[in-house]
Computed example of a mutant assay.
Amino acid sequence: MTARPAPPVPSLEPAFEVVVHIGGVDDYGVTRAGHRRVIAITGGRVTGSITGEILTGGADWQLVRPDGTLEIDGRYSARTDAGDLLYLQVAGVRSGEPAVLDALLRGDAVDPSTYYFRTVVTIETAAPHLAHLQRSVFVASCIRDADAVRYTAYRVT
């Protein structure tokens, strides 16, 4: 029998950084899907391999699990400095010890090494010169500040 080649081992290439400014939390309480929270996106900036402005109007539709872990479902738009539109969808989790998660909810400054906040970022665009963004998988390491979420997105090779 012929040996089959092993799949390539992926690595991470830094791709871009994002700062997403956020509004207050709308807490819907426990719905049929779980404890629902919605956080408005009020602006921000993308820098790195692409540069542009995060547009007002998106949101993060979160579910709070019984253990306090947040399921992240962020959707927002950006306009590059060249005028091209991007649609970003961010899905992942933020988890940690209850006291750390409570501090984050209060807006306290919290050391990002004390909680886990990772996401997958997918991008849609009609701009031909940015089509490569739609053909890659990006993972991000995120930080929650009082009025923003910051992350570095890495392209999985």
Rank of each mutant, 00 (worst) to 15 (best):
G96P: 10
L85F: 09
Y154K: 11
L88S: 01
V20Y: 12
H21Q: 13
T152Q: 15
V110W: 03
D60M: 03
I50Q: 09
D145I: 02
W61V: 12
L130Y: 10
V93Q: 01
V156N: 15
V25T: 12
V100D: 02
F16W: 11
T51H: 12
E124K: 13
I39S: 03
H129C: 04
E97A: 15
D108H: 00
L63H: 10
F117W: 05
D81E: 13
V20G: 04
S141D: 15
E13D: 13
V20W: 00
V19K: 04
D108W: 02
R150Y: 10
A140Q: 04
T157I: 14
G58F: 13
V139T: 09
G74S: 10
R118W: 07
P7Q: 05
W61Y: 12
H132S: 09
G83R: 00
G57F: 01
V137W: 02
R79L: 10
R118Y: 04
R75F: 13
T152E: 08
V46N: 00
L63W: 05
V46D: 05
A40Y: 06
F16C: 11
V38C: 14
V20Q: 09
R65H: 08
R32G: 14
V156P: 15
A126R: 14
P112K: 09
V30I: 11
D102K: 10
A33P: 01
Y28R: 05
R36H: 10
Y116D: 15
G68W: 04
V46Q: 01
W61R: 15
R65A: 12
G107N: 02
A103T: 08
I50Y: 06
E53Q: 08
G23K: 05
A131C: 02
D81R: 15
R37S: 07
G83L: 03
A153M: 08
H129Y: 00
V100C: 11
G58S: 06
Y116N: 14
T31I: 07
D73W: 00
Y87K: 03
Y154N: 09
A109F: 08
D67L: 08
A82W: 04
V30L: 10
L70D: 06
A148C: 01
V93P: 05
A140C: 06
G83F: 15
T2Y: 12
D108N: 03
Y151H: 09
